[in-house]
Design a protein around this nucleic acid. Sequence first.
DNA 1: CATATGATGGACT
DNA 2: GTCCATCATATGG
Length: 178
Amino acid sequence: MKLGKDFFARDADIVARELLGKVLCRKIDNNVLKAKIVETEAYFDEKDPASRASKGENKVSKMMKQEPGKILVYNVHKYKMLNFVSGKKGVASAVLIRAVEPLNFEAKTSGPGLLTSALKINDEFHGKFQDEKNLLWVEESADNEEFEIVKSFRIGVTKDLPEKLRFYIKGNKFVSRW
DNA sequence: CATATGATGGACT
DNA sequence: GTCCATCATATGG
């Protein structure tokens, strides 16, 4: 079952935590690649010094104010980042997918740049709803596997808030760092 | 095992 | 030219 707009229409830290264990799906040709989300980070509005929204109006902050459930693809260095817009429309808020665990394919996905490469995610998805075209979406996990959620400070961020806004599944080997 | 550093390219000033 | 929500490699214990 796919996650709807309501799922994303909450605060980024809640969405980030609840995305853990959900299944990210990517349709390529007639194959659907499935991967469990194991690591996320929450990003907020201009109060958040790590967020692009704190640097004024730009491509990213505009998209973060769009409707929840939209896909935000952002380019850092030569890699893409996969985010989902969260919160209410008009408020800058998003969740970064940092790492996934491949369920029915083999790939290195232990990092935000690696997983977008493995799933062939590019600018084509930027600004689309998460299930538009049925090429990329998130659904409930099939199993009810137990896992422990750990909070930590964000990674690779030059300026951070004194809050723990990174969430990951404890002990999962695809988490980029713990 | 750990931490440090250079390559990398798009967006912005 | 500067900044950056990264990665792979190199170095040291």
